[in-house]
C-alpha cells in the first residue's frame, strides 16, 4: 500500500507498471537528435487545424490514441486521466480529451506536469482505486509564445538565457500489472522561489527547485547518489543545468556522471534554441519517447525523472513578482531478474 519515507517521498510497494507510452512532436523537435525515438513527427504546425490551440489539443488526442493502441486497450479500460498543459485554464487538454470520455483530473504544474500526473496516477493505482490510468501533457511553441511572450511574427531578439517551448505531447499508461518499467519512488516538490523575476531566465528560476527535490529524494530514501543510471531534470536548459550541478555539489550530492536535462537533449545546439527546450512537452516527450525506450531495452535500469516547472503567469511577471518554481521526482526502475 505504499510507504511514507519522509516529508516529501513515498515508496510504492506494488510498483505500478508503465504499460505503454507514446510521444508525438512537431517539426523542429523532429529535426533534433532524438528524432527516431518519437512515435510521430508532425511537420505542419497547425496539424491540419484552424488554430495553434486546436493543434495542441490534437497532439493530446492523437497521443492518447497511440497510447491506447500500443497498450492494446480501449478508452473503457482506463479509469482516470491525469493531464494538463500550459494554456490558460488548461484548455488544450480539456478539448483534447473530451471525446475520450475518460474520468479526468486537470492538472497545472507548468512544465513539471508530466511528473505531477505520473505521481498522482501511480498513487491511485497503488491505492487500488484504478487498474489503469493515463498521464499525459502537451505544449505548443506557437500557443505558448502567444500566451507568455510576443506575437510570432514580431521581430524581437531572444536573450541568451531564453528557451524554446517544445511542440508535442507525451504520455504514459500506468497499470497495476504487466511487464515494463515500474514506478518505485515519488518525491513531491514544494515551491522554491529564489527571487528570479526574469521570465526569460527560467533555468535559473527552476534550478533551486530541482536541487531541493533531488536532495530530498536522496536524503529521504537513503539511496546512494550513484544508485541511478540516469538522473534527468525537465527543462532547466544549459544555464539551469550548470547551476543545478553546482548547487547539488554544494549539498554533497555528486550525480554529474549520470545527470542530464531534457531541455538540453531534445535540440541540437545549431537549432538556435539558445539554452534549449522547455514546456510541458519537453520532459514528457523525452521521457515517453527516449527515456522509457532506453529503460525497456535495459540500456539503463534505474531512472530518476525530475520534471521542473516555473509557476508564473504573464500577469504576475508584469506585476514584478518573482517566479515560484517546483520540481517533482519519479523514480522508475526495471525489474531486476
Amino acid at each position: 500500500m505504499g510507504t511514507r519515507l519522509g516529508k516529501q517521498t513515498i515508496r510504492l510497494d506494488s510498483r505500478p507498471v508503465i504499460q505503454a507510452w507514446a510521444a508525438i512532436v512537431g517539426a523542429k523537435e523532429g529535426q533534433g537528435p532524438l528524432r527516431r525515438y518519437f512515435d510521430e513527427v508532425v511537420e505542419d504546425e497547425y496539424y491540419g487545424e484552424k488554430s495553434f490551440e486546436k493543434a495542441e489539443s490534437k497532439f493530446i488526442r492523437e497521443t492518447i490514441s497511440k497510447i491506447l493502441m500500443k497498450g492494446n486497450v480501449s478508452t473503457g479500460d482506463i479509469q482516470y486521466l491525469f493531464a494538463g498543459d500550459l494554456l490558460n485554464q488548461c484548455t488544450a487538454t480539456s478539448f483534447g480529451v473530451s471525446a475520450s470520455e475518460i474520468p479526468y483530473f486537470g492538472l497545472y504544474g507548468a512544465c513539471s506536469t508530466i511528473a505531477e500526473s505520473i505521481s498522482l496516477g501511480s498513487m491511485v493505482v497503488e491505492g487500488g482505486m484504478a487498474e489503469r490510468v493515463i498521464c499525459i501533457t502537451s505544449s505548443h511553441f506557437c500557443s505558448a509564445e502567444k500566451q507568455f511572450r510576443y506575437p510570432l511574427e514580431f521581430g524581437n531578439q531572444r536573450p541568451p538565457t531564453s528557451q524554446w517551448t517544445v511542440t508535442g505531447s507525451g504520455g504514459v499508461l500506468i497499470g497495476s500489472a504487466g511487464d515494463g518499467p515500474r514506478i518505485v519512488h515519488i518525491t513531491t516538490g514544494k515551491i522554491v522561489d529564489m527571487g528570479i523575476t526574469d521570465a526569460n531566465d527560467m533555468g535559473a528560476a527552476m534550478a533551486p527547485a530541482a536541487v531541493d527535490t533531488i536532495t530530498a529524494h536522496f536524503t529521504e530514501t537513503g539511496l546512494p547518489d550513484d544508485y541511478y543510471d540516469m538522473v534527468v531534470t525537465g527543462d532547466l536548459g544549459e544555464h539551469g543545468k550548470n547551476l543545478c550541478i553546482k548547487l547539488l555539489e554544494e549539498n554533497g550530492i555528486n550525480i554529474k556522471h549520470c545527470y542530464n536535462d531534457c531541455g538540453t537533449m531534445i535540440y541540437s545546439p545549431e537549432q538556435g534554441t539558445d539554452c534549449g527546450g522547455s514546456g510541458c512537452a519537453c520532459s514528457a516527450t523525452v521521457f515517453a519517447g527516449y527515456l522509457l525506450e532506453k529503460l525497456s531495452r535495459r540500456e539503463i535500469n534505474r531512472l530518476l525523472l525530475v520534471a521542473t516547472g516555473a509557476l508564473h503567469s504573464p500577469t504576475s511577471i508584469q506585476q514584478g513578482e518573482s517566479i515560484p518554481a517546483i520540481a517533482h521526482a519519479v523514480g522508475v526502475e526495471m525489474q531486476q531478474n
Binding site: 531566465d201 535559473a204 548547487l247
Partner: peptide, 23 residues
C-alpha cells in the same frame, strides 16, 4: 536547496553564471 545562499546572493551568482549577450 542550500539555505546558506540568500535570494540576493543567488540572483547575483546565477547572473554571473548565465550565458552572456554578445554585445
Amino acid at each position: 536547496m542550500d539555505k546558506k545562499m540568500t535570494r540576493k546572493e543567488y540572483m547575483q551568482w546565477s547572473q554571473k553564471e548565465a550565458p552572456k549577450t554578445r554585445k
